[in-house]
């Protein structure tokens, strides 16, 4: 696991590429970088706000003490966070103290532009549309499609293989058995194929590769 701040390469284009292939746009707004983990080949687009500074404090100090070892945001491999997203760890008052809880985002997750994420966890192969709001402590399980403009209420658990939408979100269907399967086009090193080889919920490696 590498930290984007730690392993900066020479500037090249609009983004910073880390050793493990993470691509972080220069214009991205990242605070508290030491508390953020990117799994590799993950893309953070411009104007994304990653609030790594909001994490559980070992002491009740006002400012983020770097001695605290807790992670606040971890994102898996081949995930894409599109422009304008705000990713902020969830918090609640516990024993009279406002406490932030770590957030975990899995692999091959796509988060559409201008979404606000405060989930406790998002599992792998999740596709989140644009302008979504995931309220604190929501949990998204594997293989889920969240339609654009959805508001997932706090504490909601979205079970695997479901499609959610609406305000507030409700489960409105199931993704088919074929969710994420690319149907023959997958294994190909065919970025040059006629059609793009990535599908919603599928392996996003090609998509990440295509972003340059």
């Amino acid at each position: 696991m590498s930290r984007p701040s730690a392993a900066r390469k020479a500037p090249k284009g609009e983004y910073i590429e880390t050793d493990s292939g993470n691509k972080v746009w220069r214009k991205a707004n990242i605070s508290g970088a030491p508390n953020i983990t990117l799994g590799g080949r993950t893309v953070i687009r411009e104007d994304v706000h990653l609030r790594g500074d909001l994490h559980r404090l070992s002491t009740t100090k006002e400012d983020g003490s770097k001695s605290s070892s807790s992670h606040s945001i971890s994102i898996g491999r081949c995930s894409v966070v599109a422009a304008g997203c705000v990713i902020k760890p969830p918090c609640r008052v516990s024993r009279g103290v406002l406490t932030y809880y770590p957030m975990k985002i899995g692999d091959n997750v796509f988060i559409g532009p201008n979404s606000t994420i405060q989930s406790a966890s998002i599992s792998s192969h999740v596709h989140i549309g644009e302008h979504c709001v995931l309220q604190p402590f929501s949990m998204v399980r594997e293989n889920v499609k969240i339609l654009p403009h959805t508001i997932v209420p706090a504490n909601m658990v979205i079970p695997s293989n479901s499609v959610v939408g609406g305000r507030p979100a409700r489960i409105i269907g199931e993704v088919g058995e074929g969710w994420g399967a690319a149907g023959g086009a997958s294994a190909a090193g065919g970025a040059g194929t006629g059609g793009e080889s990535w599908v919603e919920g599928g392996d996003l490696r090609e998509l990440v590769r295509s972003i340059r």
Binding site: A82, P113, H127, E130, H131, G194, G195, E196, V199, I211
Partner: peptide, 22 residues
């Protein structure tokens, strides 16, 4: 699998993977 896309006008971004808000 059958897919279709416009030959001339390349869409600015993938329809189901928008990177920027439209």
């Amino acid at each position: 699998k059958i897919t279709m896309r416009s030959l001339n006008a390349q869409p600015a971004q993938h329809p189901s993977f928008p990177m920027q808000a439209t």
